[in-house]
Design a protein around this nucleic acid. Sequence first.
RNA 1: CGGGGCGUGGCGCAGUCUGGUAGCGCACCUGCUUUGGGAGCAGGGUGUCGGAGGUUCAAAUCCUCUCGCCCCGACCA
Length: 576
Amino acid sequence: MRLSRYFIPTYKEVPADAEVVSHQLMLRAGLIRKLTSGIYTYLPAGLRAIRKVEQIIREEMNRAGAIEVLMPAVQPAELWRESGRWDYYGRELLRFKDRHNREACLGPTHEEVITDLVRREIHSYKQMPVNFYQIQTKFRDEIRPRFGVMRGREFIMKDAYSFDVDEDGAERSYKAMYEAYERIFQRCGLRFRAVEADTGTIGGSYSHEYMVLAETGEDEIVSCSACDYAANLEKAEIGDREAPASTDNAAEIFPLEEVETPDVKSVEEVTAFLSIPPETLVKTLIYRTDKEIVAALVRGDHELNEVKLKNALGAQTVELADSRLVEETTGAPMGFAGPMGLKVRILADRAVRGMRNFVTGGNRKDLHLKNVNLGRDFDVERFEDLRVVAPGDVCPRCGGPIRFGRGIEVGHIFKLGTKYSEALRALFLDRNGKEKPIVMGCYGIGVGRTVAAAIEQNHDEKGIIFPIPIAPFEATILPLQMNDARVMEAAETLYGGLMERGVDVLIDDRDERAGVKFNDADLTGIPLRVTVGRKGIEKGIVEIKLRRDTQSVEVPLQGAVDAVLERIKALYDSPA
RNA sequence: CGGGGCGUGGCGCAGUCUGGUAGCGCACCUGCUUUGGGAGCAGGGUGUCGGAGGUUCAAAUCCUCUCGCCCCGACCA
């Protein structure tokens, strides 16, 4: 490609409304332009990167036995009503009516459509296992789009759906995808980790997220330094070997005691006021779910995990009560809630089980209670793992030390079970002629987000450093003196030679000064640069520099094509 | 949806408080010089000041409404 006839509009300055590096660099390097909030155009170079990621995905999906299809972006409301998600998906689902007043939506995901297809076409165990995938534009009307294409509203996604006759088959399909995903992200040159995750609105029983490790990631992840356990913070379990409660189990149980605590509300205030450590206090949190009001108890120094609470209750939504509801439920203003005398369901975190003589709110303004005890003073419905993992906790699998980090979710795989096949009646006849629901799995990859994540992970102060497998171009040639016939001839010969050998090469044939070319080449992140200058040509050499290295090397003009090919190959062998 | 901020040339911004000729840097166009890390000089073009209404002799500036964008929070495969 000749840059003079191509289109890579770069910015010198950092766009004011771009927060994270990948967003800034994608704008500055001329990969994307914004149309409106959360909606972007991919410019030629950005599209090339997207296409490279897509191609890697296709190759690996095909290798894993998945079959490519393309489903519609517009989907009828009736399908979503059948699955029950028309009401549950929320305002993220962009709905509209067509000219006949029929309700429809823009597909944020395609479980309904694929299940509809499969229920019409697949009726026998002999037709399974099967896995369909597509690479397609999705729309989710995010409350707050941000970080460029990382959290856009319209975005390109690869989604795959597997169909099996039983759990064992579904397990095999899941494993195949797990392995395909490992290969895909490895080939993209990313440092990533598969973590256990919550299933969210997609539903289902089991899932992993593929997290690209980056400090700017939106998700917090926990991983074990001793074994391979890793999980999203919202999913991360607390080990059974809970740290022993600070209060001794065998300790004597003291008589209940009331303490006036005027205007003392938060855990910090109460512990300071009573001069007690926070782990001797029990927090009572009032929650409103889609069905009822509940109370959740956690130790004073612990934080409640709403996802765990939601799952423990089997609720669709959980929402912390506002001051009015707290008052209605406890009879006291916010800050004085306690479990004694509450008329609602009470769940407690497992860490509360071993506690004795603890402090709680008194359900009356300015009152707290000391020496509260389970059994004597109140009962809980059950103990569950309800809290957020904290520093000092150990791995739930092996007891080893855990680490915290951040990641960008680029892929997510789910075991769906029969949730959709039952709702939409996707049934088949098994070997014995018995009708059963198909067992499903679904598997997503954010294509644009993968490119953004790669940039987030691979850049320096000058710009992007693309891993070669997803770079818009593999190599760029910079002729420095456009008016020097020998320089131009050498550059053109090299360009032709590389094109002939199938290299994605860009020649910067713009009539620009050397500095401009160097800076644009650095900014756009092309992994390999060949500089052709007058000084070098007089010596019969050109310079090769890898974007990720600081030093360039001189190679004879004669063998330059082979020298470039050799280095490109080496880059593919170690893309990260 | 709650809180905060911002809309002035392609980009980044000043000017708004205190109404009076719309400015700066970069980019762009022409010419000359320059030419290995974002050149210099000279000349030039570029704006419905986000939009609508109002106040006023006069509005980028004051008032009302409205649209858009960004940040924080809640939310979220």
